[in-house]
Design a binder for these strands. Sequence first.
DNA 1: GTCTTGCATGGGT
DNA 2: AACCCATGCAAGA
Length: 877
Amino acid sequence: MASLSCSLPKLCFNSNCNQLLHHNSRRGWRRRTGDFADLCDRCATAFEEGNFCESFHLNASGWRSCETCGKKIHCGCIVSSHMFVLLDAGGIECITCTNKSHVLTPNPAWPPPSLILPVLPERVKDLSVTNWSSIAASGPKPCRQAPTFFDQDLHPKMPVEVDISTGINRHIGSKKLTNSPIEKRNNLDASGRLVNGSLKHGASLLLENGTSVSKCDEQPSAYGNDKPLSAVSKDETSSPHIHLAHNHASKSKTGDHFKVSVSYAQRSTPPTAAVKNFGSPNGVGSSGESRTCNERPQGRNQLLPRYWPKITDKELQQMSGDTNCVITPLFEKTLTASDAGKIGRLVLPKKCAEVYLPSISNSEGIPLLVQDLKGQEWVFQFRFWPNNNSRMYVLEGVIPYIQSMQLRAGDTVTFSRLEPHGKLVLGCRKKTSTSSDQITESVNTGDKVYAGEAIAKTTKPGEVMDQRYSNGNSASSNLLPMNKADIADSARNCFEVEIHNNAKAVPGAKLDLCSKREHTGLGPKSKRLRIETEELMELKLTWEQAQGLFRRPPNDVPKVVVIEGCEIEEYEEPPIIGMPTIVATDDVGESVQWAQCGNCSKWRKVPGYAIVPSGWTCSGNLWDPKRSLCSVDQELTSEELQDLLPAAGAKKLKTDKENPDSLEALEGLDALANLAIMEDGDVDASSSQFTTKHQFTTKHPRHRPGCSCIVCIQPASGKGQKHKPTCVCNVCSTVKRRFKTLLLRRQTKQSEKEAETAQQKLQQSEQSGDEEVQMFCETRNGSPSHNLVMNKGFSHDQSKKKSSNSHFEGQIDLNIHPERDGDLSSLLNSVGITRTLQDATQQKISSLGGNSTNSQPHLSGVVGNYSNGVLHDGSRH
DNA sequence: GTCTTGCATGGGT
DNA sequence: AACCCATGCAAGA
């Protein structure tokens, strides 16, 4: 809405006046733009004296009478918006009567202003008791009328028709309640501010020149009525209820009757925290509810958020058609398998049924006539069953409707009311990907987060993220954009994510954070079915790990925010969950990524700009068709890969570059490392832990169910099948080779330091009775002193390991630690290398006081401190 | 044997 | 712990 004052000669802002201002303009009310309306002397005087409406709107619609004193108050424009308060049950009361007759007490049913705005300006707080002058002095509050309509939210059963042509708004079935209008006014103020605050372009029900919406037909606004007026802006943060108001208002204003209905139910999906607070069930609905037919729960505040109607403009438009009918969305229900099944019974949420549907005392219920969006009428049997001293409401006979609409589990039906006749309208919505506004709700509730059908549940910081995928590729092939910051904000580092195979997440879609029950398409509480979903897999990952899965959306430069010490990239566009890649630079200096095939684990080079979804496979290598098959060799040599991996935070592996088959060995060791990670029960917060089901074994992600490799079949205890001494597999050959290399090195070092070491030993023997030799002896016996030089895993059940070793004597125990004397001895003996123990011991002695692991980076790089199935690599790659 | 009806159960909130 | 509600299931038609 643009002001014409920029380009046209300055006129009095009052469109009823439009007098030319010759440098004598006076300040009127403040507009949403922050500017003040420029008024001529006459208008300004009227404004300041509080009779602006009487002077300029006398013949306009919107005049109403105070319910108490009968005084005529113009309720249609912003200028007079503070002269009255809306009564709960309809009607208005002038501010004077309000001040006389009501005690200002907070209404517990309403959210405190602090929930809506952290700090309300004093003038806003006082609006409920300020008189016109004070308001005029401080400047009227544009958009304050908007909450007037929202006030109707307090009458969920009373869709309000504001017939501006007559200036009367009718509260259908209303009756005056005891709520203090002042209290409500307080709320209105707050909500008004909220609405106003949420509007970036601030459309208001009222024109800024003080003309009510109704005037748009009567007298074009200075702003031009080329744009449809709306109760609130169609801001990008607008919630559906706002859209509804907008839509309806703009749609109907062409007729003689301008009807606006804003049910509280329309405040269904609060898009922001602020709006959420405002629209929370606890915030509205109770006080104004008037249900005369029986004593039943009333108000949306009693409905669970999942039943709040999340109606869209389109749907509303479809519902309302071209009529002047007022649509009041009541509630919605996501169809469960039972609902959509052939039984033909749609279970209605109890509260919804009791609040919005006719009261029934007989379990047989009553026939319910509903109308679909096409106008076709349906008759369902609305009834209930006694259930645990309660009732279970169902709609029977919905099969024709379900079939007609081709609804399935996960789809949503929306119950609305069509006024003025109160006819029920049953809309439906196919299960779709999620809307952006839903993310906030979940974030704010701390509830599970669903990415399409992904659930993210907050856990304590440091806990692991539990992620379930229906299958390995579904989550990956379906790009699941998420906003890191959003997630992080809610999840606080870690969360649990469930992604099901029927996820429909699409690029650009955001997480469904509120309709958790839609995530399976099987309805809520579908644990049974979820568990039965064999393709479901579970993996656990940390938040940091999840971070690695996010791929920057195209053409988006992320902002980096720090949340609880964790740097998080924040995107304007939804990021994409993708596979972690290794970013590198090729020979030409161009940025490339190395992505690992989900099937063959081979690394493929893709352009730096490429977005590689998780679960990416060679077949998706569009950039290098020659390597788009898993059977094609890897471009990277093992050494190159080794160089890349540490940088990528991947497992640090080193293979023998001379061995052409080292990649396979690499994978074996990789698997060992994975296994080690998996077996490590003492995973710190920063480490990752993947637990997979179905697609992967719990041993290591690379291996598939049924994998019989030595890694997969070996238990954590170290017991079980081991490689035989004669085994020439790549793992064994690599390990053997490593030990040979190690020993050669040690020999060299030993010879170099021999003299010095001998001298030191001699000196130490003389001084301390040869503690180190004693240490060595203790180590050989598996005494606790061993832990002085070994990582913690070494203390793990030494005796058991020894018995295990003896049990598998003659076999290679891959759980050995090359630095551990006993294991080393065992290995060397098993592989026929006899002269090792002493050397290794000497080496250990020589490295006492330092970190033996660090002294042997090469070895630790190969197998880490791999003991008893546990990788004790400090870097935990 | 199939379908309908109504209650019971139990996981989830 | 109480309540909700999705769904199973038995009894009856």
